[in-house]
Amino acid sequence: MFKYTKILQYPINIKKKDLRMAKLLITQYGGSNGELAASLRYLNQRYSMPDAKGRALLTDIGTEELAHVEMICAMVYQLTKDASIEELKKAGLDPNYAEHGYGLYPTDANGVPFTVAYFATTGDPVADLAEDMAAEEKARAVYENLIDLTNDPDLIGPLLWLRQREIVHYNRFKELYDEYKEKGNQTR
C-alpha cells in the first residue's frame, strides 16, 4: 500500500511564471521518458522479478518516482498558475486549454498523451532491467535538455536534482542487472 506524506521530496518554489517551460516540462510528467512512465513501469515489472532483491528494488524506486511525479506536477502548476487566457494563447497553450482547462494532463512536450505502451514490460528480468537502465539514461538526457532550455535558478535546482536521481537509480538497476546476468550465465 501507499501512504501520503504532505511534503515534497525536494522543495519546489518557483517565483516566475513561464508558460513556455511548462509546455516543455510536462514531458517529464506524461512523456515516454517521464516520471509517471518510470513509476508505473517499475511497479508493474516488480511482479515478475525472480527474487526478493528485485521485488524490493523495483518497489522502492517505483515509489520514489511517484514523489518525482508530484515534483514535476508542482513545477508545471507553479509555472502556469494564474495564467490568463491571453497568456495561454501567446504560449501556444490554447489547444491544451480547450481540452483540459486549467487541469494538468500527462502528455509529452508535443502534446502526445501518456500511453501504457511506455511500460515496456517483457516479463524477462534481464530484459526489463536493461529497459529500466535505458529509461533512467533517457530521463537523465531529457533533464539535461530541459536545463539547457532555461536560465531560471528556481527550475534549474530541482531539474539538476531530478537528473542526479536518474544516475543513482541507474546504478542500483545496473547492480541488479549484473547479478542476474551472472546467475543466468551460470545456469546456461
Binding site: 542526479q164 544516475i167 543513482v168
Partner: peptide, 12 residues
C-alpha cells in the same frame, strides 16, 4: 545534490 554517495555523484 540528490546523491548521498560521493563516488557516484556526476555533476552536469
Amino acid at each position: 545534490r540528490g546523491n548521498l554517495f560521493d563516488n557516484t555523484y556526476v555533476p552536469y
